[in-house]
Nucleic acid binder design. Structure first.
Lengths: 345, 345
DNA sequence: TTGAAAGCGGTACCAT
DNA sequence: ATGGTACCGCTTTCAA
């Protein structure tokens, strides 16, 4: 690999001038710049990232962090997380545009003890410019990030501070639209397969659902809210429990498309028809929705926007030194074939 | 951040000794090592990655490369590529185990010109230890990788040389099992929705299918081989074309599960039943297969193994300086409900 | 505007 | 086994 020294020699200037030419900020005469650039091109010169990083104490790198102690991508193989693929795609696109590389740091050997501090040390060792965290990170890690001063953006998780903020879909409004749609169709007994309200999307969606109900003067029946865990298995079981309760309902709102499919299977396995007997609404609007039958009515999350805004917010934090306010990306209902008016009964 | 100098001072040894303690290879007395480690722990010391990289000319980083000129994750949002999520997961898991970080380099601004050389320069600038490439990379990039001497493992793409090899499922055998299964059920008129044979999986699967046919003394009808492009839309259209041909067939073999679902939809949209009228076989065995109805008969690809062997092969190349032979990971047929004997007719 | 020189935080070779 | 020291390639004062 050619070094700036080589380029300097060929261009007949000092090594410092080569550095200035590439760092952009400094003033270099047009003539010199041209000479240097020609020499650099001829030698195929690219600045050494490690050397730059060593002296500047930073690198054009954004670290990705994800839920739990598991490696980021472990989770992506769970069908309920196909959603994050879209987000990752958008992150990559926009990070690239800004000239940043995405890094998936190897998880420490012993994820259990002193997680937080160790995690931060590894990030510092890598001199990452910032962190984007998908989903709810473990508390120790989240806390450590908030205190570290490392620019951080949480996606789908709460967390803000001087150098941290979060972006997510407008879950309140998304859930409100979903429930409102059902209400307009005439449903009054609406069940929800819901994740705990301790996680941000769970909290916001519950609030949105209740708001829609309240607007229509309908009281939420707590028996129709069944806890689940984002997994299709959990949703299937929750639906079975719901059916076993013997409480009347004509519609089910799920927390994800994948869960919605599981709900539909649970219903049809019991001889119920969707949407004739029961309406079902999902969340996410995955690409593969177009492949499923019946077409799923669901709340579309704009993964492109999610990723774009996350990168944008992170860059702002890196450059300005302070994090912007939390960001909500609009969500919108997509009506397909899994919802219909409740049976006449 | 604490430096090795700080640790040395606290431990009452020289900075060089601290370095030795951490590099592991050199000989340090037990007593000294203990002192140094205590001091390091107290200071929260972690070696600076950039400094290490600068002096060693390498880094514990594996770069991910993927198809086309697009950013890696662009492709992952296409439903036909959900398969690679599983592979990525396995890659991450095994890279972590070996202490390597995964890097997704930002794509150059102008992906068109001088792609190859520029790509390599960026990798060298980052001093990546090796590259893992998913799917068929653009020719310029692939060629550049092969010539660069950078350890490389291609997944699902041909490519080998002194420092490069490839790993993929045993596509020949997988396709053979699929077709053999259909033959055993009594099918003779077997259609294939197939990607071009210029890509490795396309080539191998075609060979496997023909081998199974040949074993059974069945002649392949070229009219039953319809070209497609891995996408569900392409598969849907291909199926429609197939139906329009007026050529008899009782089974369809697709190149992926997602395509298989599209094939099923195309068939049922024409009033045909699966598997009563037509049997359909997919490839991949995605996690979400368990969520689909009918249950899809498909060829299972072991994504864990794929990722594990890829990392293993790359580490071998990095450490030994020479690449191992190409690796085929066993695939196996999973029989569910989308295949049955052909209609009596 | 440009050149010279001092590090950034490590590694590794040379003595001791 | 340990300490001293010469770099790795670049950024950034400080002078000229």
């Amino acid at each position: 690999m050619a070094t700036s020294e080589d380029v300097a020699r060929l261009a007949g200037v000092s090594q410092a001038t080569v550095s200035r030419t590439f760092s952009g900020s400094a003033r270099v005469s047009e003539a010199t710049r041209a000479k240097v650039e020609a020499a650099a091109l001829a030698l195929g010169y690219v600045p050494d990232a490690a050397a730059q990083s060593l002296v500047t104490s930073t690198s054009k790198t954004i670290a990705l962090n994800a839920f739990g102690n598991e490696a980021l991508l472990s989770l992506l193989s769970r069908p309920d997380l196909y959603f994050y693929i879209g987000v990752l795609r958008a992150l990559q696109t926009h990070a690239t545009l800004a000239g940043y590389d995405l890094l998936m740091p190897s998880t420490p050997d012993r994820p259990d003890q002193s997680d937080g501090a160790d995690y931060i040390r590894r990030l510092r060792s890598r001199k990452v410019a910032g962190v984007i965290s998908l989903g709810a990170p473990p508390d120790a890690r989240k806390q450590a990030l908030l205190e570290s001063g490392i620019p951080t953006v949480f996606i789908d998780a709460a967390g803000s501070g001087p150098t941290a903020t979060h972006v997510s879909s407008d879950n309140v409004d998304g859930a409100r639209q979903a429930v409102r749609h059902l209400l307009e169709l005439g449903h009054r007994r609406i069940a929800r397969i819901a994740v705990p309200e301790t996680v941000l999307p769970g909290h916001d969606r519950a609030a949105g659902a209740r708001a829609a109900l309240a607007e229509a003067g309908v009281m939420e029946d707590p028996r129709l809210v069944i806890r689940s865990d984002w997994t299709p298995e959990g949703a299937y079981d929750a639906t079975t429990i719901l059916l076993g309760l013997g409480v009347e309902f004509t519609a089910v709102v799920a927390e994800s498309d994948i869960e919605a499919f599981a709900v539909i299977h649970a219903l049809t396995d019991q001889g119920l028809r969707v949407p004739e007997d029961v309406s079902v609404i999902g969340f996410d609007d995955l690409d593969l929705c177009t492949l499923m039958r019946p077409g799923l009515t669901t709340v579309h999350q704009d993964v492109q926007q999610l990723g774009a805004r996350a990168v944008e917010a992170l860059l702002h934090t890196i450059e300005q030194g302070s994090a912007p306010d939390p960001i909500a990306v609009p969500a919108r209902l997509v009506v397909r074939d899994s919802t219909a008016p409740p049976p006449a009964s």
